[in-house]
């Protein structure tokens, strides 16, 4: 078979999504955004979540991050049920222009979550310096976010998340609004940061290439109402680079497979398990 089976979970999962369902109550009737989602992330895993547009990716992320309560089911972070934004989780949003505080300089933006949690000044400075260094922004700490390009603003948001030292990092289509070249740089940045910190990353994207290039694992969602269409392991070498990795036959194979699954999902094909339930 082309694709490996989902691995058995050995130790306790870092992030666990159990029978998650979300129904929006609107004036025009109920809208079922997510029907039934179940998956686990092991500690230190980098997983990409990919699905057709309108497959409830953002809804799912809001439920995981505790910004929104699911209608049914639950999210467990390190075994503890998520009921509000957990302390050990950081989120990077797609809209970089609206997720940084425009009245604060770069450094203050990165520092604020730490300051808010009462991290001592010396340690704070150290963490902020390190994070800015890691994303290649050590030279602009005193700029305002809006003085920077889109890609640099998203780097600030990533630095803020990194400095916060989360156990789980959620990213909601973070590179959807930046140009292609910047995007490639930022993808490599995520791989580098992940390898260095070994933080658990859930990366939501609608870009198939990006999901295969970035992830150690790709979770494919069906179209709405959403279930897990397929869960595959990306068995590409750990050291990846834009030119060589993307030229590997295995990359093409995986890309094809994910692409096919997404096409099936768009046509309304649903995995057998979901049809039964």
């Amino acid at each position: 078979m082309l694709v490996n089976e989902k691995p058995a979970v050995k130790d306790q999962p870092m992030l666990s999504v159990r029978d998650l369902k979300k129904v929006y109550k609107t004036d025009g009737g109920d809208v079922e955004a997510v029907r039934n989602l179940t998956f686990d992330l092991r500690p230190g895993e980098l997983a990409c979540l990919v699905g057709p547009s309108g497959s409830g990716k953002t809804t799912l992320l809001k439920c995981i991050s505790g910004l929104m309560a699911p209608t049914e089911g639950e999210v467990l972070l390190n075994g503890t049920r998520v009921v509000g934004p957990p302390k050990k989780m950081a989120v990077v949003f797609q809209e970089y222009g609206r997720s940084l505080f425009p009245w604060m300089r770069v450094r203050q933006n990165v520092e604020l979550p730490l300051k808010n949690h009462g991290v001592p000044k010396a340690e704070r400075d150290h963490l902020v310096d390190e994070a800015l260094e890691a994303v290649g922004l050590a030279h602009v700490p005193h700029s305002y976010p809006w003085q920077l390009s889109g890609g640099m603003q998203q780097r600030v948001a990533i630095a803020r998340a990194v400095a916060y030292q989360p156990e789980v990092l959620l990213m909601d289509e973070p590179f959807a609004a930046v140009d292609a070249q910047t995007r490639a740089d930022l993808e490599d940045l995520i791989r580098t940061v992940w390898k260095k910190l070994r933080v658990t990353v859930l990366f939501v994207t609608h870009d198939i290439d990006e999901s295969v290039y970035l992830g150690e694992r790709v979770i494919i969602l069906s179209s709405s109402p959403t279930v897990v269409q397929e869960d595959i392991i990306i068995d590409l070498p750990e050291d990846r680079d834009q030119l060589n990795t993307r030229a590997l036959p295995r990359f093409t194979e995986l890309r094809h497979h994910v692409y096919e699954q997404i096409q099936l999902a768009k046509k309304g094909h649903r995995p057998a398990a979901a049809v039964v339930s």
Binding site: L67, F93, R98, M104, L112
Partner: peptide
């Protein structure tokens, strides 16, 4: 802004800090 407010919430900026910084 909704996104800014969500960002603040995910980083636990609440109560007086929310008023002061957001």
């Amino acid at each position: 802004d909704g996104v800014l407010s969500d960002s603040a919430r995910t980083y636990g900026v609440a109560g007086w800090a929310r008023v002061r910084y957001l």
